[in-house]
Computed example of a mutant assay.
Amino acid sequence: MSIMAMSDASILFRTPPSILISNHLTEFKTLYNQQVYPLYLYEEATQDKNVGLGDLFDESLDLTVTQTKYERKDGISDEGLQHFQTAYPNEQIAKEDIFYYTYGLLHSEEYRERYADNLTKELPRIPCVKKAEDFWAFSKAGRALAHWHLNYETVEPYKATLDTGTTPYSQLTADDFRVEKMKFAKKGEKGTVVYNKRITIKDIPVEAYEYVVNGKPALEWVMERQGVSTHKDSGIVNDANDWAIETMNNAAYPLELFLRVITVSLETMKIVKSLPKLDI
């Protein structure tokens, strides 16, 4: 089943280049002043419907109720589809293929380097690569990337070494998973992260930090946000442990999320590094 069969999705992009995909409505500054490229748009459509009150009352008292519905429309235009179909006349290309092609292409390191100057000043332009086989390679890569990026909370956690001292992991209690602030064991060495006084995460592949979102490795976003912090001005306390227990019903959620994002990061970079040469 494709990602889109389960939910709609939108590509989020900002300059300097940072890209993400979401199957939920996002706040405008998720990627800081982002541009959103949805697979589908939903336009409001109203319809007047007469509601009769029956023979008990005068027909002149019948009510007209305005109902609001939403019509789904493609985010990719017919002209855009025709542009790609003309470029690859022997291929059966759908708008969804172009959507994922775009997501794959925007992850291309060669694309980002070649158009680095343009991407700091204007919206990304999506060219047709010369070969149909490369189009499908980018589209397939985009689908695979979407899988990892949309399902980051449910993918298999990376099997890092978890040092829990003299207590086996299986015997840890909910309190043992409470996290205040994750930190690297040594400055400049990212292979080991101290989760809390009870748990240390070891043997983290350093290449996992190559996957960067919004200017920072995805893993370091997890380290920053999955903890306890107090807003300086308001005094409001943000405690990731509350979310883990009350919403996710899993005290180990922050730890498991970190391990899952290792998996996502490694798989992302594997796909990115296998993208075809940008031949346009």
Rank of each mutant, 00 (worst) to 15 (best):
I93M: 09
H147V: 09
T86W: 02
L257Q: 05
Y253A: 13
F99P: 02
A252R: 14
M1W: 12
M269A: 11
E133P: 06
Y101K: 09
P205M: 10
E210W: 11
S60W: 10
Y211P: 01
F138C: 04
D242N: 04
K216R: 11
T26C: 10
G227K: 01
I126F: 10
E224I: 03
S77C: 07
V206K: 14
T68H: 15
T164I: 13
N238G: 15
E256G: 02
E156H: 15
N23E: 14
D97Q: 14
K216E: 13
E133D: 13
P17H: 04
T15K: 05
D62M: 12
H231N: 07
T26V: 05
F13D: 02
E71T: 14
E91V: 06
M4S: 13
A252C: 04
F138T: 09
K273H: 13
K95P: 11
A144Q: 11
L275Q: 14
V261Y: 15
S7A: 13
P89V: 10
E110L: 05
N33M: 07
S234A: 08
H231G: 03
G54R: 14
Y42I: 07
T15Q: 02
I271C: 03
K190P: 14
L41P: 00
V222G: 04
D242S: 08
L119K: 00
D239C: 03
R112D: 13
Q34R: 01
R125N: 00
K49T: 15
A141H: 11
V206D: 15
F135G: 07
K95N: 04
L119A: 00
D176T: 00
Y100V: 13
A174L: 01
D78F: 08
Y42R: 06
T247W: 10
F177L: 00
T263F: 11
I93R: 05
T68Q: 05
P124L: 05
L39I: 15
E246F: 09
S18P: 02
N90H: 03
I262W: 06
S234N: 08
F84K: 00
A208V: 03
L12C: 03
P217W: 05
L150R: 10
V264H: 12
L145Q: 08
D117E: 04
Y115L: 13
L39A: 15
L105Q: 01
A240C: 06
E43Y: 08
E113F: 14
T268W: 15
T230R: 07
L266S: 11
H147D: 12
I199R: 01
S274T: 15
G104K: 12
T154V: 08
L56W: 08
R14S: 14
Q35P: 00
N196A: 00
R72P: 10
L145S: 07
N33V: 05
L255F: 02
T230E: 14
G215L: 03
R72H: 15
E220P: 04
I204D: 07
T86G: 03
I204F: 11
N249V: 08
A141Y: 09
V222L: 10
Q34D: 01
Y101E: 13
D55E: 14
G142Y: 07
D176P: 00
D117L: 02
Y37C: 01
L275D: 09
R260M: 14
A132G: 04
